[in-house]
Computed example of a mutant assay.
Amino acid sequence: MNRPWWYEDPPGPPRKVAGGIRARSRRGEIAQTWWSRRFIEVLESFGMGGRLARGRRYARAGQVLGMTLSTSVVVARVQGSRPEPYQVRIAVRAFREAEWRRVEDALAGQAWYAAKLLAGQMPQDIEDVFDRLGLKLFPDSQRELSMDCSCPDWEVPCKHLAATCYLLAESFDSDPFQILAWRGRTRTELLDHLRELRGRGGGETAAGEAGEAPALADCLDTFWTAPHPPPSPAPGAVAAPGALLDQLDPLPLTVRGRPVVDLLRPGYAALAGTDSDAAGTDRADR
């Protein structure tokens, strides 16, 4: 009788590995920021909560050997009980170019959103921008998320997929722009487009695609209304000391080979009452 290959090597404890990716959180919740917690909440809303918990130990033990995020797909190698690591894939639909242009136009039209993103931060209510355009930043159904693993476990997510989900959430903690990159827009592309739109007065608050003001007769009902105030910052939120510098286009000025913007950062950090070294580290992390 021919048996499947996995009958020949019964499952057991995972093989210990060195140099794997370990979750920074050693106990309690792994996701720390609102956007990474939101990602985990979305997965749990699909009825995956119990199965996700099985992968937490794998994530903290460093069983994930490598993980790469690119447009629409995350791939990882996870060491289980077999000699060969399992191949893991988590995919989501990337937005089309026309959809991203609509998102960027909406973001550029609100100074608050543009300033937060240009400062390397994720606006608290950015999901609302996508919702108004009929898009979802995070998948809202299990059908939008494709998960598979080369292990013999038929449940989805298996512990190898779950471990990858937790480490993906932690990577969102470190760099929220990875969420947008997963949907098809890298940090550089998004920020360059926002600077371009802001520079020419674009965005949904500008009138008309050609940049021309609408006729007065077409906007009498809104002409005397006050503009919408920017969203209130989250309680305790503090703007990065160099946020203003991050909104500038690159300046063609250097001092002894160093960009002048980098030389200004310690001064902004001192004025904000923060340590300049910490400010420099924050800049490097972004």
Rank of each mutant, 00 (worst) to 15 (best):
A91D: 02
V129Q: 05
M122S: 14
A108N: 05
L161Y: 04
P152Q: 01
A119R: 05
R132V: 04
P139E: 05
F177M: 13
S146V: 15
A115K: 07
A169I: 01
E155G: 14
E99F: 12
E97R: 09
A162K: 07
A115E: 14
A162W: 11
C149H: 03
A119I: 01
R93T: 04
R89Y: 11
F177C: 07
V156S: 06
D105E: 13
A111N: 13
A111T: 13
E97T: 10
A115N: 10
G109W: 04
A163T: 03
A163L: 05
S174Y: 12
R132H: 09
C165F: 07
A162N: 07
Q121M: 14
F130A: 03
C149D: 14
Q142S: 15
V103P: 01
R183I: 07
A119Q: 05
V92T: 08
I126E: 14
I90V: 11
E144D: 06
W100E: 04
F172T: 03
Q110S: 12
D105K: 04
P157I: 00
F95K: 08
V156C: 00
C165S: 05
S146Q: 15
A114C: 09
W112L: 14
V129Y: 05
A169K: 10
A106I: 13
V88T: 11
I90F: 03
K159L: 09
A163Q: 08
K136S: 15
R96C: 02
R143V: 13
D128Q: 13
K116R: 15
E127F: 08
A91N: 08
A119F: 06
G184D: 10
C165H: 03
L135P: 01
C149Q: 07
D148H: 13
L167N: 11
E127H: 08
F138A: 06
H160C: 00
L107H: 04
T164S: 10
L167I: 09
G109V: 09
D125P: 02
I90P: 06
L135D: 03
